[in-house]
Each structure stands twice: as structure tokens, then as C-alpha cells.
């Protein structure tokens, strides 16, 4: 397994992050945006685990952080979906172009 160098993991993670980011920025559907966010979080998880495995395999820091990220992602999905449902009930749409409330 050690035949795979660290950089490959990092490239995979970066690619995953970019895919997620693109999804977040380009999708009009709010649910697709949330899915993009999930991808970005998982890219982070890949990074955390890769660094842990390659630089400090004796400790547990990477695993612990990754576990935190899972938990937060799960919670975020729950809240995010709830928000989207609430918006949908209010405005009959989940199209982000039509939801421009975040301004003064």
C-alpha cells in the first residue's frame, strides 16, 4: 500500500474538492448545491486521513478530525435539507437564482 505516494491522495482530494466546488457554484438546484458541499467535505476527509497515515501513523489526530467532519456533515445535511424544505414551502421553488434574500 505504501507504494502509492502521498501526492496522489492529495491530487485525488483536490480533484474531489474542485468537483464539489464546481457543483456548489454552478448548480441551480439547492439540493445539488448541498451535494456539492458534501463532496468538498469528503475531499477534506481524504486529505486528513492521507496526512495522518503518511506523516503521523502513531497518533489518532487525523482519524479524530475525520470523525468530527462526518458528524458535522451529517448535521449540516440535516439542517440544510430542512432549510431547503422550509424555503420550498415559502416560495414554491428551490432554484437558487430566485432566492436572493441574503442582502441588505
Amino acid at each position: 500500500m505504501m507504494g502509492v505516494p502521498l501526492a496522489w491522495y492529495l491530487i485525488l482530494a483536490a480533484a474531489l474538492f474542485c468537483v464539489g466546488l464546481y457543483g456548489v457554484l454552478s448548480r441551480r438546484n439547492a439540493i445539488a448545491t448541498v451535494m456539492g458541499v458534501e463532496l468538498m467535505l469528503n475531499a477534506v476527509n481524504v486529505n486528513l486521513l492521507a496526512f495522518w497515515r503518511y506523516t503521523e501513523p502513531g497518533g489518532m489526530t487525523g482519524q479524530a478530525f475525520a470523525t468530527f467532519v462526518y458528524a458535522v456533515a451529517a448535521a449540516e445535511v440535516a439542517v440544510g435539507l430542512a432549510l431547503i424544505v422550509a424555503i420550498y414551502r415559502n416560495r414554491d421553488t428551490v432554484d437558487l437564482d430566485q432566492i436572493n434574500l441574503l442582502k441588505w
Partner: peptide, 18 residues
Amino acid sequence: ARLVLQTGQVQHYLLQVL
């Protein structure tokens, strides 16, 4: 600036962050 930068759309804000 407000008219340009502050659109009220999350994705635009994220673009700025990016």
C-alpha cells in the same frame, strides 16, 4: 458596489470567497 457585489445570492458570495 452594492449593486455589483451584493446580489443576495449565496453562490455569488461563495465566488467572492473563492
